[in-house]
Design a protein around this nucleic acid. Structure first.
Lengths: 240, 240
DNA sequence: TAGTGGTCTAGACCACCGC
DNA sequence: CGGTGGTCTAGACCACTAC
């Protein structure tokens, strides 16, 4: 866990601060120590502290308010839903879909999953099937894989405790915060098994979204593959 | 054109440098003056110059190389193609498709186009149809709209001068640089007209990508709608 | 070796906030 | 008013590049 001593100090301080936030030593909504205080306690110049804070502000972990202080950003679960759930109905509605976890089990990682999650081929993973519905109509059938090592607490949870969104649960119960993700979209004719789940005809065009979600430490946290009828959905992306 | 004197100096310097780049006083691929030289000629501390350069590096206009200098980013047309052309074949091939402009005319802006491009309802626009092919096989049928005011030079160009990529032409002939874009993906059954262009059966599932491209001034530059057979394509996006 | 950007310091003064 | 972050300065030393 020893950080590379050749990393710049502002990088090491940034990692230190991420750890404090992850450990809930600095809690969302709270102010962190002032730049002066940090510079003294870490023995760094204020400018160096500023650079570390700059990084975390850019990453969205901290928020600065002139004259008031610097605060740990409160995870906005609505916003994060829409950050990651880019589908919407043609009417532009963006409601949180109802979620039903159909299955959850701990299994040996299939090799493709282990490779994607960058874990050992002998590691265990949590595998889930989940159905997402709007107004009781199935919209997405999801398969989800989580590395057991990070999400052991989740494997033991009563499924009734899990609401419609997983990321808040990851955060509160497993201390795993999703910071970024990559998504790959394709279109395929839906297979018989998923057609049954989605209550559509086999062979209907379906959108497939594969999402790999990463934590603030840039390690893969979750892999999911979601399928839904292509006719219903709109996907938006920004390119910078 | 007088910049607001209340803006921080690094902001004003950043704006100054953007102007120099836009005016092609500093040209793509060339090194800009060293931080020392800039600090002297503008009468600023090196740290302040650094902050301005930091901004432009973050915006992608400049590139820094330790020990060599800071360079105006050469629009890497390959890279920019793949920044904006996120489709690829299932084999992972990412080749530049051949382009054929089928039609180009200057017309009154349809109201939806005027609204999207944020121009007057009485403004003129350039409208284009374009076909993109790989190995002679049609992959995408595109409709493109450009505000005439910014792209007048393009309207007069010989189409033989236009290569397979439009953004480089916008840059060299119209001084319009695409900095960012939003894309909206949907799937539809292809209509008869586009089916003919793409040489597929009417009703085949097709991906529709609507892209609105913006300049560095955050004004809309181009609106395009591309359609291609859904079976062929993969779309990748990053969420941050 | 000379010159570049990268890191870091130790201050100063300002604008803004909450009391 | 005192304390916060925001801006800015004027250096120092380091790592890397090109010659």
């Amino acid at each position: 866990m020893q950080a590379d001593g050749r990393l710049p100090r502002y990088q090491r301080l940034r990692d230190e601060m991420v750890a404090l936030i992850a450990a809930r030593h600095w809690r969302p909504g709270e102010a962190i120590p002032t730049e002066q205080a940090l510079s003294q306690s870490y023995g760094l110049a204020v400018g160096t502290v500023r650079k570390a804070v700059d990084l975390l502000v850019a990453e969205g972990l901290l928020e600065r308010f002139q004259g008031r202080g610097t605060f740990v950003r409160r995870a906005n679960f609505d916003a994060s839903l829409f950050r990651f759930f880019r589908f919407q109905t043609r009417q532009g509605e963006r409601r949180i879909p109802e979620s039903r976890i159909l299955r959850r089990e701990v299994v040996d990682a299939p090799s493709a999953v282990a490779a994607t999650l960058q874990i050992s081929r002998t590691a265990r993973v949590i595998q889930m099937s989940r159905l997402r519905l709007i107004d009781g109509v199935p919209m997405l059938a999801e398969e989800i894989w989580l590395p057991y090592a990070r999400f052991a607490a989740f494997a033991k949870m009563d499924l009734d405790e899990v609401g419609d969104l997983l990321y808040p649960v990851y955060e509160t119960h497993c201390n795993q915060i999703v910071a970024s993700a990559t998504e790959t979209l394709t279109v395929e004719a839906i297979g018989a098994r998923h057609a049954r789940l989605l209550n559509i005809e086999p062979g209907t065009p379906a959108v497939v979204i594969e999402r790999l979600a990463f934590g603030y430490d840039r390690q893969p946290l979750e892999w999911r593959r979601s399928r839904g009828p292509a006719s219903e959905f709109i996907y938006q992306a920004e390119i910078r």
